[in-house]
Amino acid sequence: MIKVVNLKKSYGRLEALKSISFEVEKGSVFGFIGRNGAGKTTTMNILTGLIKFNGGKIFIKGKDFLKNKQELVRSIGYLPETPTFYNYMNTYEYLNFIARIIGCNLKKTRKSVGKLLEMVKLTKQGKRRIGGYSRGMKQRLALAVAFMNSPEILFLDEPASALDPEGRVEMLELIEGLKDDKITIFLSTHILNDAERVCDKICIIDEGKILLTKNLSQLYETYIQPIFDVEFEEDPEDEVNLLKKFSWIESIKENGRRISIYVKDIDYAKKEILKELSKLDNNITSYRTRKSTLEDIFIRMVSKNEII
């Protein structure tokens, strides 16, 4: 559905995207994750045709995006990071304005506007000027705009960043529902739990480079190894330094009296770790192994530990 090849983008001297490539399948949810300033919004602005790029190729629905932009954009909906509207309009006026641009017929528009407002829970506030909306309300309205004319591809840039907890859950349910309708979703988010729940494919971007693109199931297979969480009675500073010397330990994340040990060789570690811990001069209050979550994988990837 979307194919990006060696995409490059610079802002003056700053290389925001350093030749990235990936592919998004039809009807899938593509999770685009990365730290602040990684290049997520830049990528989405390019793929929705809002900004130019410096190199590479983009294909959407098999067609060259640059050559067929005007036509392809019609099947795309975009929820930008910070949506801006004409503040003097109310919600109905703005949605009608967008409907006119898309070219929906008026009768259909009236029905769909009502439905959209119900979906994003803005029916009651529909007659108020957008200028007086809260951030979350604006995000809800932006979602309604992105949804107009049921696009085939949806770009959602941190769609839940301003929503209340209830709204966030609704957003996830909505995305899950869209998956059933064969709509392709390109989702950027910082809430990795959410990404884990709804995405089919995960793409991690850092400093304008793609570190990994994998199906979620593959990801777990590859990076499944457990993490050992250990809690000590006293601050384990010396112990950590001691443990770090072992070649089978990859890294240790410290958090007060609790540490998380990431290892390179699981089978070996399982046998050795308890032995080594028991030799230490600091009593252990808890010991637990857990599966890595997307968050663990993410943190390990972006903290430059490419050897996992």
């Binding site: 809002l50 930008p80 949506p83 801006t84 509207f85 967008i98 705009v145 107009m148 004319n149």
Partner: peptide, 10 residues
């Protein structure tokens, strides 16, 4: 950035 929505909808 008022043109983001209109342009993104063609």
């Amino acid at each position: 950035k008022k043109l983001v929505f209109p342009y993104s909808r063609g």
